[in-house]
């Protein structure tokens, strides 16, 4: 009896053949599609029904009239470099602004009890569950009137909508895990509120702040719809550039494949960073755990 029970527990923990097959399929589905995308980005001629390109971009380099493949991606006419700059600039400003306005709210939500708290919490969640397009068109009309459409500040402002809910959630859980003792000691020892904030509170929440900031950066750099609406073609970011490359219908050309790969870079970099330095739970803080 006892032996049977033990084996039962052990078996549950080890992965069976079906589970291993499932994981192989998952990994294959995630990574597999990138193989033709990478190959496609190096292709010059890749016609039906060849499984590999019949001519590669570097072979055609000398003969082609216009820059091909990766040459085109990195040339100024493709606007890839410009879009990358825009994406990074906007994401950094969104992250800083988002952190600055989310910090006080997160602190209050974590530490204080007050009337209407659950209402505020619900209020801060609504951007996650109301479709973006419902907000997008209303904002676009307003921003056109205000002259904010097609400007960096217009895009930065709309990016705050989907990022604030995440930032507040992450920072709230950071403050919840923070004891009041150190701040109180600093105050008792005569530090001003500002000094306490700078020398005591901020260093303690820094890891959480960095985690929240990285996600905000990522969310901002991946936003398409709101940038597309407010940017109006005047300001291109990587996602809107990719949109104009893939929305034509038909097959995907080498340049589109190259742009698609470039668009993945921020996400991959961030994935590597978070895997190494940030605990899994931060991702899903507050989603019913």
């Amino acid at each position: 009896m006892i032996r049977q029970r033990r084996r039962g527990l052990g078996d549950r923990d080890r992965l069976g053949p079906f589970g291993r097959f499932y994981l192989t399929v998952v990994v294959g589905m995630v990574l597999g599609p990138f193989v033709p995308l990478v190959i496609g980005s190096f292709a010059f001629r890749w016609t039906w029904p060849d499984l590999l390109p019949s001519r590669w971009w570097w072979e055609a380099r000398a003969t082609a009239r216009l820059p091909q493949g990766w040459d085109y991606v990195f040339s100024p006419i493709s606007r890839v470099v410009e879009s990358t700059g825009n994406t990074i600039l906007i994401a950094i400003l969104v992250t800083l602004l988002c952190a600055a306005i989310s910090l006080p709210a997160a602190r209050v939500l974590a530490k204080e009890r007050f009337r209407g708290k659950s209402f505020v919490e619900f209020f801060l969640l609504t951007p996650l569950i109301v479709p973006e397009i419902a907000v997008g068109l209303g904002i676009l009309v307003t921003f056109i009137q205000l002259g904010l459409a097609g400007t960096y500040w217009g895009i930065i402002l709309v990016h705050l909508i989907p990022t604030i809910p995440y930032m507040v959630r992450v920072l709230t859980s950071v403050f919840q895990g923070l004891s009041d003792d150190y701040e109180e000691q600093a105050r008792v020892l005569g530090a001003s509120p500002l000094r306490t904030l700078w020398h005591v509170t901020l260093p303690m929440i820094l890891p959480g702040l960095v985690a929240g900031g990285l996600f905000t950066f990522l969310i901002s750099s991946n936003i398409f719809l709101l940038t597309f609406f407010i940017g109006g073609g005047r300001i291109e970011t990587l996602p809107t550039l990719l949109f104009s490359r893939v929305s034509g219908g038909g097959a995907l050309d080498a340049v589109a494949a190259g742009v698609a790969l470039i668009v993945c870079i921020p996400g991959i970099v961030l994935l590597v960073i978070t895997e190494r330095f940030i605990k899994e739970e931060v991702f899903a803080k507050g989603f019913g755990g």
């Binding site: 599609p33 990138f34 033709p36 995308l37 496609g40 990522l218 991946n222 398409f224 990587l238 996602p239 990719l242 949109f243 490359r245 893939v246 097959a251 995907l252 589109a256 494949a257 698609a260 668009v263 993945c264 921020p266 996400g267 991959i268 961030l270 994935l271």
Partner: peptide
Amino acid sequence: MIPYLVGVALTIVL
């Protein structure tokens, strides 16, 4: 970690 549009590009290629 990557935009939906990359998924779109992958789907077209596949």
